[in-house]
Design a protein around this nucleic acid. Structure first.
Lengths: 189, 189
DNA sequence: GAAGTTAGTAGACGCTTGTTTACATGTCAA
DNA sequence: TTGACATGTAAACAAGCGTCTACTAACTTC
């Protein structure tokens, strides 16, 4: 009755990577142990290090393959503030934070071993794409403040949960965030 | 040549508490070990649990004694947005984050054992005092967004360091943050 | 000065962590 | 079929963690 799984290097690697994306997003780097990871991926612990080198390198690969900040470069939005507001609101009310980069940054403490990875991801996945869409000399400053708001809303969600704001007020939240982002990004463009 | 310290319960307790404030702020909950704490306080490890019960309870006491969000209730500021902007800018450029509550929240990962403590502090030290100063029915919403910006700037500082924005641009940063906070809090009041 | 209480110490306890080693088993070429 | 290699497994490793117990030494009280 025991299900036998064919030996498949790529599939196993894939299962581990998927489990890592899920767990690192939900729990952050420190709370995810190799054994929990292995159990979630239904794989042996030693295989994680065989395929990815170390926990740290696996974490780096998880964040790398997430690419840029979602919807930042894909299509040229005519209303960036509203787009960001809806993105943030979506995450504020969501039951679980489903953005690996933002969630992992927020849920991962000050572990020195992964700080450089998070810093690099923060810059290349969020800050730079955002600044690239802003005109003017102080684009970097404005992108930084916007990024702070995005990250901070993740912190709020993590600590206070998805039911902190009344569920019915979602439209008002989007409107308010839109106004704030508009001020933050400069010209409403 | 060995310095002898007189036996002093209160002084020892105080040294431990001071060391805890310093270390938890700089490193977050998880990165601070009991042994590091004891070394910093120049006290024995067992004394920490004797005086505070456990690492968790010490952490709670550290955050509790920090009181409310600084300068939020003390004096009635005529320009709250600018006040918040200067507070955030000060922390953005500071070499080290010196606000225990915000710093500890940012640097502490998703450890379930302290999440409730952080949540409670976030509400009573930041969110509630802020909302209390805002008029209107959606004060809670606006305070939440402002809190997100405050916390998020802490995240930016943690990951990118104090030199991410050019040091000379501090006045521009304050001006920009003031505008954002004004939009965020509603009436510029 | 003796007895009792209390501050401070040293070390071990049990557990968990990431990582590694030694081994078994499936797969495929010759 | 046999050898070689790739894949998967189980167990152990050393190190670190928070906590606790057994003990010493100092101060207080009679």
């Amino acid at each position: 009755m025991e299900e036998v799984r064919p030996r498949d290097r790529d599939a196993t690697r894939r299962r581990i990577l998927d489990a890592a994306i899920r767990l690192f997003s939900e729990l952050g780097y420190d709370q995810v142990t190799m054994r929990l990871l292995a159990a979630e991926a239904e794989a042996n612990v030693a295989l994680i290090n065989r395929y990815f080198g170390s926990k740290r390198e696996l974490f780096a690969e998880v964040l790398e393959q997430q690419g840029k900040f979602p919807g930042m470069l894909d299509k040229a939005h005519d209303d960036l503030p509203r787009h960001l507001a809806e993105f943030v609101a979506e995450r504020l009310f969501a039951e679980r934070d489903d953005n690996p980069v933002i969630s992992a940054v927020n849920r991962t403490g000050a572990s020195p071993e992964v700080q450089e990875i998070l810093r690099e991801r923060m810059i290349t996945a969020i800050l730079d794409p955002l600044a690239a869409r802003l005109p003017g000399p102080d684009a970097h400053l404005r992108a930084t403040v916007a990024a702070a708001l995005i990250m901070g809303s993740g912190t709020v969600h993590r600590l206070l949960g998805p039911h902190h704001l009344e569920a019915g007020s979602r439209a008002a939240v989007v409107d308010h965030l839109t106004a704030v982002f508009a001020t933050c990004l400069g010209t409403p463009n």
